[in-house]
Simulated assay, not measured.
Amino acid sequence: MKYSGLLPNLPKELRIFIATFVIVLSVGYFTGLLFIQETESTTPTGIEENYLGNEDDEDADVMKFKKGNREMLTVVHTHVLSMSLIFFLLGGLVWLAKAPKKLKLFLTLEPFLSIILTFGGIYVMWSGVSWFRYVVVFSGILMTVTYTGSAILVLWQCLFPTRYKMSDVSSR
């Protein structure tokens, strides 16, 4: 099946539709990151406090309590499902772009590993393995870098297709 490099060869209207989708998806993704920043969960200590609470810290500006089992399962469940769908859709568009096969393989498979490590890691940390907070930070950063790279690749080829158009679209 010939699919590599198909994205910049699509009709202009379809490329605009895809670019609009990726822009709106990115607004949602990065708004989520702003929420994480607001909850002060961008550091290993902040992540731990957000899920395990900080009732023992008398100097804390905002008191946080340990999340319950039901709340943790809801957080993990909803994030794994929604993030998987986000990366599945974006990954499908990445495979239509013109780029080296190894780069596309990384951009489309790594996010799924990061989803498991980030949200599974949050649950493992909450369960008592506190060093997993470092895994959560690392995998969350890697997931965001991968998302950004994928979104830029797709947007760039939708908005500036003449650099990537091919007369014979072939699979890599």
Rank of each mutant, 00 (worst) to 15 (best):
L25P: 00
Y134G: 01
A151G: 01
T45Q: 15
K67A: 03
M166R: 12
P44Q: 03
P44L: 00
N54S: 09
E58D: 13
M72R: 01
A99S: 12
L7F: 04
V145I: 13
V22N: 10
S82V: 02
L10P: 13
F138R: 04
M83A: 14
Y134H: 05
L33M: 05
E110S: 10
L90H: 03
L109T: 14
M63A: 09
E49F: 07
E58P: 07
T144K: 00
E13S: 15
M125G: 04
M143S: 11
T148V: 09
V135A: 09
D61C: 06
D168C: 11
G5I: 01
F30R: 02
D61G: 12
K66Q: 10
L155E: 11
F17R: 15
G68M: 02
T148M: 10
A19Q: 13
M125L: 14
M143K: 14
V27D: 04
G28Y: 02
K64Q: 10
N50D: 04
Y147D: 09
G92F: 06
V154K: 08
Y29C: 03
K98V: 10
V154F: 06
I116Y: 00
A97P: 14
L34I: 03
L14V: 02
F160P: 08
S130E: 15
H77Q: 00
L6F: 01
G92T: 01
W131E: 15
K12D: 10
Y147G: 14
F138T: 08
T146C: 15
F87N: 04
P100E: 11
R163D: 08
V94L: 10
R172L: 08
S150Y: 08
L89F: 07
S170A: 11
M63T: 13
T31W: 01
Y123T: 05
M72P: 00
D61R: 10
G121N: 05
P11I: 04
L107C: 01
W95M: 15
P100Q: 09
R163P: 03
E49K: 11
N69Y: 13
T43M: 15
V27M: 02
Y3W: 13
S4D: 11
T108F: 08
V169A: 12
Y147Q: 12
M125F: 08
M83L: 10
S127D: 11
V80H: 07
T74I: 00
S150H: 12
D168T: 14
K165T: 07
V22R: 04
S114K: 13
L52N: 14
Q157R: 06
I23P: 09
S26A: 02
T162L: 09
